[in-house]
Design a protein around this nucleic acid. Structure first.
Lengths: 233, 233
DNA sequence: GCCTGGAGTATGGTCTGACCATACTTGGTC
DNA sequence: GACCAAGTATGGTCAGACCATACTCCAGGC
């Protein structure tokens, strides 16, 4: 017989399960520390290597952050940085061609339209820091000299819109999308040469959001993405 | 001085980098195999533990799958299962309270509306298997006896919509969202008791998509989510 | 010639124990 | 009180061993 699908639970998976159980049952919060690797190994009756592999998984998922040395901040501390995990995931999926650029860009369009709409609705309230970030990015793009520089601030601008939506999950996905597409974006800007159209689009988006004009913001974003990816429309 | 932020790159991170370089440069595809752990360790001049930690990271990201034993399928094979990584990420973020249920549900609403619209547009073409999956899920929900059972088929139905959109990234996010929310969904169904309204909503969504009525599909989905989460509207 | 069963072997999974670099903690010295 | 050196707990890394698994190969029997 070949291809038996059942697989024994690996030791590090049991460690993962136990750590997650502690998080949910003991109500651990961001900032709390996990026991040291050696201590955890003894408690769970596994080797330190297995504990390390489990912690590596959690670190990959952005749930813990390991610090060497000694003191209150040393060891495995619970954090929350889902961005890098999402970014790595998308970048690798693109590299493996198991996702097409088209799919990523369509997703971006969906998020961006939604974020712009939400941000415009929220604009009447506070949202000061996000608005500042948008304005700052728009300004920085005016003086960008290289494509890398331009894209960096372009990313900051669009991420600021997503953050202004008030939804951290959507913002995290947006950051991941742009991070994974960074390389392609730089190439696209270099190919384009002139960024005047893009910069004008940014101003329109910013103005519409600041004015609380949701429909206008959605429209401006849609136009902008069409300019940025003419080959897909 | 305290809190120096610079950190030496760890050995397994170098391994990660090298593996990713091979994927992009050598054009490795899903199904291709990586060298064995021992061989990789020797090639990169690191210990096997470091190689293992790198592979564990890639496995967490759903990029490789490790099989023991010997033969063509043994070893670390490149795959593409971003779902579990996304699911774990969301579940842990919810457990750590670094994401609110509100944010997850709002994201779901965004995705679901978009997917329904796209699926309706695509309905004129083939999309046979997704339509089948939807119909099958609708049928199964009629005969579900327990809340667990109902939610299982409910998830299948909504995932089928996302898949019918034709965007694998959106579908993966949808699967992750529902997977991470499974527990809450079961509780919600138990609290609700009567699922007639939900089942009627599903039929409306299904009919609208099958008829290619995009606006109707979006509307039906919005109504459905309002029924499913009355406390958020 | 074909099938069958056992030996061989490459794979990941796990464990042990050691050593290193880091960074805080402690305590002594001036 | 300020400063510096020893102590120590932490993660990071390595080497080497052993196990379970699952395929490969080959000898033997039919």
């Amino acid at each position: 017989m070949t291809g038996d699908r059942t697989r024994r639970t690996r030791a590090f998976e049991e460690v993962l399960f136990q750590i997650e159980r502690r998080i949910t049952d003991d109500g651990l919060k961001v900032g709390d520390r996990l026991p040291g690797e050696r201590q955890l190994a003894e408690q769970l009756q596994v080797s330190r290597s297995s504990v390390r592999e489990a912690i590596r998984v959690l670190e990959t998922l952005g749930v813990v952050s390991s610090q060497v040395g000694r003191g209150p901040d040393a060891g495995a501390v619970l954090t929350s940085r889902p961005d890098s995990a999402l970014t790595d995931l998308l970048r690798l999926s693109l590299g493996l061609s198991s996702l097409s650029l088209r799919e990523v860009i369509d997703t971006r369009l969906m998020i961006e339209r939604w974020s712009a709409e939400q941000a415009a609705h929220a604009a009447t309230g506070a949202a000061g820091s996000d608005a500042d970030a948008m304005a700052e990015a728009v300004r920085a793009m005016e003086s960008a000299q290289t494509a890398e520089d331009f894209v960096e601030h372009d990313i900051a601008f669009h991420v600021a819109i997503a953050e202004a939506s008030g939804n951290r999950l959507v913002a995290a996905v947006m950051r991941a999308l742009r991070g994974a597409m960074r390389r392609y974006a730089i190439e696209a800007v270099e190919r384009l040469g002139d960024t005047r159209v893009l910069r004008e689009d940014h101003r329109r988006i910013h103005d519409a959001i600041a004015a609380g004009d949701a429909a206008g913001a959605v429209d401006a974003v849609t136009t902008h993405l069409a300019h940025a990816y003419p080959e897909l429309f």
